[in-house]
Design a protein around this nucleic acid. Structure first.
Lengths: 199, 199
DNA sequence: GTGCTTCTAGAAAATCATTCTATTTCCGCG
DNA sequence: CGCGGAAATAGAATGATTTTCTAGAAGCAC
């Protein structure tokens, strides 16, 4: 199903770009096959040839941006020596991403992201193993080094990502959060929650 | 749009109950007007009379359960003397709720919950002011008492609810979290993150 | 029981997703 | 070249789902 010819590649790109634009302009209900074909000039046949269904298209769009987001998060971790700085870098990477790609961020946080009964996390696990495994490994590694409290990895991940995702979500839909302040304050607060050091 | 007669009330109840059942049995794609009318025996006309659209129906279903969840959370807070015990009670209330109402929990956490471009949080603010305001007030109160760190209320809320929602979500879709352990461990960890005490 | 509103009912219309068949474009290979 | 098959484009036809619309039945106040 992935394109074998260059024109196919171009069509796929065009469709994905157009889909995000349509979503950005008209919101979720606007994201229909018809709207995307009209706005892109691509025919129905091509859309279905490449994506199989409207969900397939949205899916691919989500994947594209999720890949980017996770990539930046993993990079942030890899460039950090200690667990503490890792948390800071991860938080900043995440918040910068949603600030710089508002529409994509909204798509990732909202609604369609859970299509087909999978949550963002589940989707990650299935298709982004290459990105997720390093994060879990990173956590496990720092737990073993005694920096992070000896808790199950999923709980650590909830403690770290939960507040970051929550703050991003809130900024996206409400705007009652100052992203700079969040990037400054959350990391140290999150760190207190997962640190192995006694209270 | 809300029913004025008893039979109307009964129809609304029946539709909401049936909708959750249909969702529980067939997942998101199964939740169609047709499926709900067939399964409930209620006519299309009645459904549209009461809810205006399929989204209106799903919306009302979400509201009904959100109301219950928030109610239990607020109750938990009100029965807690200190901020610390409040966090514990809140966490337990939330996790108990999703355990006891799995399908409703899935509906609240997944997919449809963000319909119409509003996140769960935004939805809260709009329609559940009566429930949300007490929570914000509770936070503000304990900030003033010097128990909780002097941060903006939205950040505190992200730090508290983020991990809880994340863990619940993960349990619902993955099952790789032990809810009892989460209920035991998360509160103290969350507390460390929002406590006003120096590290 | 009259008059008004709410509610029920389901056929008809509109919208949207998908399938299908035909046609064109690309690309490797002789 | 130019032939043959795979990839891609095209859009009409079909199918599924939501929504509108009109008609009438049931409740309620007086």
């Amino acid at each position: 199903m992935s394109p074998k010819q260059q024109r196919g590649e171009a069509t796929v790109e065009l469709l994905l770009d157009t889909a995000l634009r349509v979503y950005a302009e008209g919101g979720e209900q606007a994201l229909t096959v018809n709207a995307v074909t009209k706005a892109s000039g691509v025919s129905l046949g091509s859309l279905y040839h490449h994506f199989g269904s409207i969900d397939g298209l949205v899916d691919a769009l989500l994947m594209r941006w999720l890949e980017r987001l996770l990539g930046e998060m993993v990079t942030a971790l890899e460039h950090s020596r200690t667990a503490r700085t890792g948390v800071r870098a991860l938080t900043r990477a995440y918040l910068s991403f949603v600030r710089e790609h508002r529409e994509a961020g909204m798509l990732l946080h909202s609604s369609r992201a859970d299509r087909l009964g999978m949550t963002q996390a589940a989707r990650l696990r299935d298709a982004q193993e290459a990105r997720l495994t390093p994060m879990a490994a990173w956590v496990a590694h720092h737990v073993e080094k005694g920096e992070i409290a000896p808790l199950p990895v999923p709980l650590i991940e909830s403690l770290v990502l939960g507040p970051v995702v929550g703050a991003a979500r809130r900024w996206l839909t409400f705007g009652d959060i100052d992203l700079d302040e969040a990037a400054r304050v959350l990391p140290e607060r999150i760190w207190r929650s997962i640190s192995a050091e006694p209270e």
